[in-house]
Design a protein around this nucleic acid. Structure first.
Lengths: 127, 127
DNA sequence: CCTAATCTCTCCAGTAACTGGAAGGTCAAG
DNA sequence: CTTGACCTTCCAGTTACTGGAGAGATTAGG
């Protein structure tokens, strides 16, 4: 499988597939005689794993850790759960931050008339 | 006012104060004979404005736009409201994304036993 | 007045995770 | 044989700073 097929199969952009091998997130693929990267199903499965993990907001380093656990037959589920729980907490923190941001901005937006006149509570608040 | 006093007064790190002038977000301050940057209250107020706008998640470019409106006596409140509403929508999109992410990950985390055994629904899902 | 500590300056590099583009080699179809 | 799609490497840019080096300025204490 050439890189574009692997990209399609994994759901990642070609550039990203190359990048993930460059930084060692996944193994460097073997090469054809002409130097083309060659992917097999196992490699694609790891790319899919990386994509899904990233979609959950895990950082590259966390993906690296998760991929390590993915490939480790002896890992315990508690190791995985620890990482996922940490990420879940981060999400919850972010949600609270976003909520208060939302409320404050929504308040300003609704209190601004948004007409042709210059007086504006949004600007007043920021300044 | 030297830069550290302006930083303290505005609530921004010294590095950031310098940075904001470097990129032209705020005016370049005048200099002392020795080349030290010198800030007045007006400059500090703009720095505060920038800090608050950033805290609302406005990008530097949006801050630039907002600061322009802040300094423009003739702007209408509708111009400001348009930018703020756009940002508010972005926040709401992000909130929804985060919510579904949260729900999916929370589901996985609760369904994972987190014990010493290797079978783990989180890994199963990602792989 | 000297010295040590604290500020300040500029410039360079690094962060996270890609993304875009240039210059050039390869492959399959017609 | 040529065209077009694909592949390669390498370099640069993105966002919004942040850290640090090396050097000059200022201030407080003795």
């Amino acid at each position: 499988m050439n890189i574009s097929a692997a990209a399609k199969a994994s759901g990642l952009p070609v550039k990203t597939v190359r990048y993930y091998a460059d930084i060692g997130l996944v193994d460097a693929p073997s090469r054809s005689e002409a130097g083309y990267r060659s992917y097999d199903d196992v490699a694609v499965r790891k790319l899919v794993f990386a994509r899904r993990s990233r979609a959950f907001g895990f950082s590259i380093e966390e993906c690296r850790e998760l991929l390590g656990l993915y490939q480790d037959q002896d890992r315990t589920s508690s190791e995985v759960k620890r990482i996922a729980s940490k990420r879940l907490e981060e999400i919850e923190v972010k949600q609270r931050e976003l909520q208060s941001l939302h409320d404050a901005l929504a308040h300003l937006v609704t209190s601004c008339r948004g007409d042709h006149r210059p007086d504006c509570p949004i600007i007043d608040y920021l300044g």
